[in-house]
Amino acid sequence: MTERTLLSYERYQPWKRVIEAGFWIVVTGVNCVANSITTLMELRRGDSSIQAWEPAVWETSSAVMWLLVVLPAMAWFTRRYPFQWGDWRRQLARYAGASIVVCLVHVVGMVGLRVLAYRTQGMTYDFGPWPRELVYEYLKDVRSFASIVLTMEAYRLLLRRWQGEASLLAEPDEGPPLEPVDRPERFLIRKLGREFLVAANDIEWLQAAGNYVNLRVRGHDYPLRSTIAGIESRLDPRRFARIHRSYLVALDHVASIEPLDSGDARVHLRDGTVLPCSRRYRQDLRTRTGAEPG
Rank of each mutant, 00 (worst) to 15 (best):
I100E: 02
I100L: 15
V101Y: 01
V101M: 09
C103W: 01
C103N: 13
L104V: 14
L104T: 15
L104N: 03
L104A: 14
V108Q: 12
V108F: 12
G109T: 06
G109C: 07
G109Y: 01
M110F: 11
M110C: 08
V111F: 06
G112W: 04
L113W: 04
L113D: 07
R114T: 09
V115Y: 06
R119S: 12
T120C: 09
Q121C: 10
G122Q: 05
G122A: 10
M123D: 09
T124G: 00
Y125P: 02
Y125N: 11
G128T: 07
P129K: 15
P129T: 14
W130V: 15
W130S: 06
W130G: 02
P131I: 00
P131C: 00
R132K: 13
E133N: 05
E133Y: 02
L134N: 11
L134E: 12
V135N: 03
Y136L: 09
E137R: 06
E137Y: 11
Y138L: 07
K140M: 05
D141I: 13
D141Y: 08
V142P: 02
V142Y: 08
S144Y: 07
A146H: 01
A146V: 15
I148S: 13
I148A: 14
V149A: 11
L150N: 07
L150P: 06
T151D: 01
T151R: 00
E153Y: 04
E153P: 00
A154E: 00
Y155A: 10
R156C: 04
R161D: 12
W162D: 07
Q163R: 11
Q163P: 01
A166V: 09
L168I: 09
L169H: 04
A170Y: 08
E171R: 13
D173C: 01
D173V: 02
G175F: 05
P177L: 08
E179G: 06
E185N: 13
E185P: 00
E185D: 08
R186C: 04
F187K: 14
L188P: 00
L188M: 15
L188Q: 13
I189T: 12
I189H: 10
K191G: 09
K191Y: 01
L192Q: 12
G193P: 13
G193I: 00
G193L: 12
R194M: 05
V198S: 03
A199P: 01
A199L: 04
A200W: 04
A200Q: 09
D202C: 10
E204C: 07
W205P: 03
Q207N: 03
A208M: 12
G210S: 05
Y212K: 06
N214H: 11
L215A: 11
L215T: 11
V217G: 02
V217Y: 05
R218C: 04
G219E: 07
H220V: 14
D221V: 14
D221W: 04
Y222H: 12
P223S: 02
P223W: 06
P223K: 00
R225G: 02
T227D: 07
I228P: 11
A229D: 15
I231K: 11
D236N: 15
P237M: 01
P237C: 07
P237F: 05
P237A: 03
P237Q: 06
R238Q: 13
R239L: 15
R239A: 13
